[in-house]
Amino acid sequence: MGKAIGIYLLLINVFTLTLFGYDKDMAEKGKRRVSEKTLLIFTFLGGTLGALIGMRMYKHKTNKASFQIKFLLTFIAQLFVYFFTFRR
């Protein structure tokens, strides 16, 4: 089970990082963007590290306070789910 979780986390983080990069590229081109809701859903599903790397690497969503607050709340919700799911 642990190996499967590790593979899942690797894949979701790589995908989330890619999603942030894609959204930044679309923003620069003035094309249809990935919704903030979608970015936050993949962050919540385990892509927190990928999202953080994507925000820093692409300098994307770092100056948007409303997104930063939503990101923080998503991370806190993720911690609660983890705590109540895996506590012993």
Rank of each mutant, 00 (worst) to 15 (best):
L40Y: 03
Y22A: 09
V14C: 11
G46Y: 00
R88H: 14
L40C: 02
M55E: 02
L79P: 12
A51H: 07
T74M: 11
L49W: 10
G21A: 05
L72A: 14
Q68Y: 03
F80C: 15
T43Y: 05
T18V: 15
S66Y: 11
F20R: 05
M55W: 01
A27S: 08
K64V: 13
R56I: 11
Y22S: 07
N13V: 13
E28R: 10
M1C: 11
V34E: 03
F86T: 10
L9A: 07
L9K: 00
M1R: 13
R32I: 10
D23R: 07
I12F: 08
L49A: 08
L10C: 13
I12M: 08
I69K: 08
K59L: 13
I53P: 04
G6P: 11
F42K: 02
I7S: 05
F80L: 15
L79V: 15
E28W: 01
A51D: 07
L10G: 07
Q78G: 09
T16A: 09
M55P: 04
V81R: 13
L17M: 10
K24N: 02
F75E: 12
F75Q: 14
F83T: 15
L49K: 02
M1F: 13
M55C: 03
Y22G: 02
Y22N: 09
V34F: 00
K64P: 08
R56Y: 10
G47W: 10
Q68F: 05
Y58C: 06
G50S: 00
L39R: 01
M1E: 14
R33K: 12
R87I: 14
K24F: 09
S35Q: 02
L11P: 05
F86N: 10
E28Q: 12
K61P: 03
D25P: 01
F84R: 07
